Simulated assay, not measured.
Amino acid sequence: MTELTPALISALKLAKDGDLHPQPTNKWTHENATVTYAKNDRWKERPQKIKSVTPKSIVELSNSGLIERRNLDTDAAKDVYGITMAGKMWLLKNK
């Protein structure tokens, strides 16, 4: 079984919510991610920051087989990554 750091676990959970796309800030997040607001904040005064993943986390998760590239034709730095069945099973068993 693969031991993951808390940062890798949060990256895997983010990948479970949807495919990870490269962003101009050298981070990875959902395709059209925008600043959101707390569900219980009816005046929308406190924005929640966009969750993102570092390229190092992407490499570590893909090397362990928990996420995979979606389009093998393109450059790896510009490709979309999604969670694999092994990643889903790891999340079910561990967190």
Rank of each mutant, 00 (worst) to 15 (best):
5 T>N: 07
62 S>Y: 00
26 N>H: 09
75 D>E: 09
5 T>L: 01
77 A>G: 13
42 R>K: 11
15 A>H: 06
69 R>Y: 04
9 I>T: 08
10 S>N: 14
12 L>Q: 06
56 K>H: 12
14 L>R: 01
65 G>K: 02
30 H>S: 02
9 I>P: 05
93 K>V: 03
39 K>A: 14
19 D>K: 07
95 K>C: 15
90 W>V: 14
57 S>A: 15
23 Q>Y: 09
39 K>D: 15
13 K>M: 09
58 I>G: 06
48 Q>E: 03
48 Q>W: 09
27 K>P: 00
22 P>N: 07
22 P>T: 03
21 H>Q: 11
75 D>L: 02
94 N>C: 04
84 T>Q: 01
73 D>T: 08
11 A>Y: 05
90 W>P: 05
26 N>P: 07
95 K>Q: 15
40 N>I: 14
70 R>I: 14
34 T>G: 12
52 S>D: 01
31 E>M: 15
23 Q>T: 14
11 A>D: 01
62 S>Q: 03
78 K>W: 14
23 Q>F: 06
87 G>K: 02
68 E>V: 06
94 N>H: 11
12 L>G: 04
39 K>S: 12
87 G>F: 00
2 T>L: 07
87 G>P: 01
79 D>F: 01
40 N>Q: 13
38 A>Q: 10
30 H>Q: 07
5 T>S: 08
32 N>M: 10
71 N>V: 10
84 T>S: 01
51 K>P: 05
34 T>F: 10
41 D>T: 09
81 Y>D: 04
71 N>C: 10
18 G>L: 05
23 Q>W: 10
4 L>C: 06
44 K>I: 09
52 S>M: 06
83 I>M: 04
4 L>A: 02
34 T>D: 07
69 R>L: 03
10 S>Y: 11
55 P>K: 02
23 Q>V: 08
48 Q>D: 10
82 G>C: 08
55 P>T: 02
91 L>D: 08
71 N>K: 12
16 K>L: 15
4 L>V: 01
20 L>I: 05
82 G>A: 12
64 S>D: 06
26 N>S: 13
31 E>T: 12
18 G>V: 02
90 W>H: 11
64 S>Y: 05
91 L>N: 03
24 P>R: 11
59 V>N: 14
74 T>R: 08
21 H>N: 11
66 L>A: 00
69 R>A: 04
47 P>M: 05
60 E>R: 10
91 L>I: 01
50 I>P: 06
16 K>T: 13
19 D>A: 14
63 N>R: 12
